[in-house]
Amino acid sequence: MGIKTFQQAISEALALEMERDERVIVMGEDIVGGSGADGEMDAWGGPLGVTKGLWGKFGDRVLDTPITESAFIGAAIGAATTGLRPVVELMFIDFMGVCFDQIFNQAAKFRYMFGGKAETPVVIRTMFGAGLRAAAQHSQCLYPLFTHIPGLKVVVPSTPYDAKGLLIEAIRDNDPVIFCEHKLLYTQEGEVPDEAYTIPFGEAAVVREGEDLTIVTLGRMVHRAVEAAEALAGSGIDCEIVDLRTTSPMDEDAILESVENTGRLVVVDEANPRCNIATDISALVAQSAFDALKAPIRMVTAPHSPVPFSDALEDLYIPTAASIEAAARELAEYRS
């Protein structure tokens, strides 16, 4: 046990599973770095150094790839159906655009199309989210698109502890898993056991208990929701925060249980507002907990625009603790 970063938690999960199971391989663009060059190997360990050191420990089971996402993501999927358990890195979630067929027409559908005869134990790790001034093609929150596809499991961890436990669960899972890492969470610190452990999918974390209002959220937004809840507590508004952890499967019971208790719901999703996780949850609650609602549901999301480059605009684009707080206050005061 010790305090570790989100990044270390992921690296530790990969190393533990590679040690435990030699079928686990790791591949992706520059996850080693320096392949074929005259300088040092393991020069990068991924663009942010998350996989650094794995090559030294596991050699050929850590593979740099050409910049050919269709080929190497597809290859990971193929290898998964034929005996390996690949963890493949899609550097930025935005790059799903160049390899989506392999993910949603191939990996996601094998089991169903083949009458239950295939298993595709692949994990696609990918970085997402705004805040790094990385502009429109490197900043999106595209987990709703994966969540939409039956056959895929989608994980969006918010803490180092969850990242490690969910990644090990993902590697041991026999279905394709999209593991989405918010790029601004890599330096987040928290207590993480040294040993391997697993967190089941479809089990939300109630990160704060409260009586007045439910905030359902995920990823980096969990931390902004906590910040908002602390400010709201000062005004006597007691928020419960449900961190989904996985969007597919999704812990509907945890959401409904909380809303039935509080009667008010704010859903916070960093994704664009149409057909995202917030709309999904709002529909769920409107359908299944309508009678419990004391106020309309509020969604706090990014706007319906691409991610802007300029910091002045990007800071407006990303939902803030203040915007969550404002939505919560509106509900708390609704018809009161």
Binding site: E195, A196, Y197, T198
Partner: peptide
């Protein structure tokens, strides 16, 4: 749960 989740 955190205890029970640990391998072994």
């Amino acid at each position: 749960l955190r205890y029970k989740r640990l391998d072994g």
